[in-house]
Amino acid sequence: MGALLEVEDLTVWLATRGGPRKAVDGLSFQVDAGEIFGIAGESGSGKTMTALALLGLLPHAAKTAGRAVFEGRDLLAMPARELRAVRGRKIAMVSQDPSTSLHPMLSIETQLTEHMRHHLGLGKSEARGRAVELLATVRIPDPEQALRAHPAQFSGGMRQRIAIAVALACEPRLLLADEPTTALDVTVQAGILRLLHRLRRERDLAVIVITHDLGVMSAVADRICVMYGGRTAEVGPREDVLTRPRHPYTRGLLDALPHPEGGAATLQPIPGSPPALGAVPEGCPFHPRCGFAVPDCRAVRPEPVLVASGHLAACPPDPLGGAA
């Protein structure tokens, strides 16, 4: 079966005062229908820019190269008018903060039905009926009443459910969720993660979850791509990446997490900090912070290579290979 989305060698340059700077550098991955694909990384790793590139929503004067083939057509080469027909219709996005992604002054009904009427040509009452169903799907109590309300009348978790309902309105094939639970409490987060998991199963929806939280990844993602300095450090099945990581950066991220059983008094941070835009080191972008770096790491840019079934890592010395 062909992938729903196939990203090949995606590169994004952002315009800065000092000239164009690479924010994403030769990223490749694919996402199948009904799959939850996780993109993990710290801020500045290029994960959000990847999502924005797919939607044609990059900041002004940004440039892209490579391909992002969705249902047989390259999103990056598509004329703006055609991309508008895909965006919100076939590909939808949920962002981090539901208090900014929903319009504070518009009723939930307006926000839920607007693009159904635009994209699907539905009449007012038909769109309203669908809106009630959608709110029920995301488990908003009393959907009829909710349609008349405004975002401020809901809690953060309920607002994020509504934002997901808005994203689902035109029955997209792919949902981009950028830190969908970062602004929420863990108890509320649990509900949103279960919702994403259920939607994928019921609707065969593909979801790209972007988060720095490896716990969230572990809960919902089928496959995980770990990004560093705009590139893939490692990509593979969830369990492989989280229990048998092959890139020292992934190992470092896991070691920096509080141990699930508590106990050890200190956390193990990765020394140094992630590179700033335009200041990504030559060779392997992680080498200045890597405890396993060899001289080659400074000079040769590593490409992701297959290290296990479906598992690629961009670390030629493969110091963690023996641990598998």
């Binding site: 809690s155 863990v186 108890t187 649990a190 279960r194 572990s218 809960a219 919902v220 369990e239 229990t243």
Partner: peptide, 24 residues
């Protein structure tokens, strides 16, 4: 108990955290 059960663990097991129904 509910708070602790809601924390997802990065153990790769794919276990969904337990939801505490309702809002504060």
């Amino acid at each position: 108990q509910a708070l602790i059960s809601a924390v997802p663990r990065a153990d790769g097991a794919g276990v969904l955290p337990v939801e505490l129904p309702g809002d504060v």
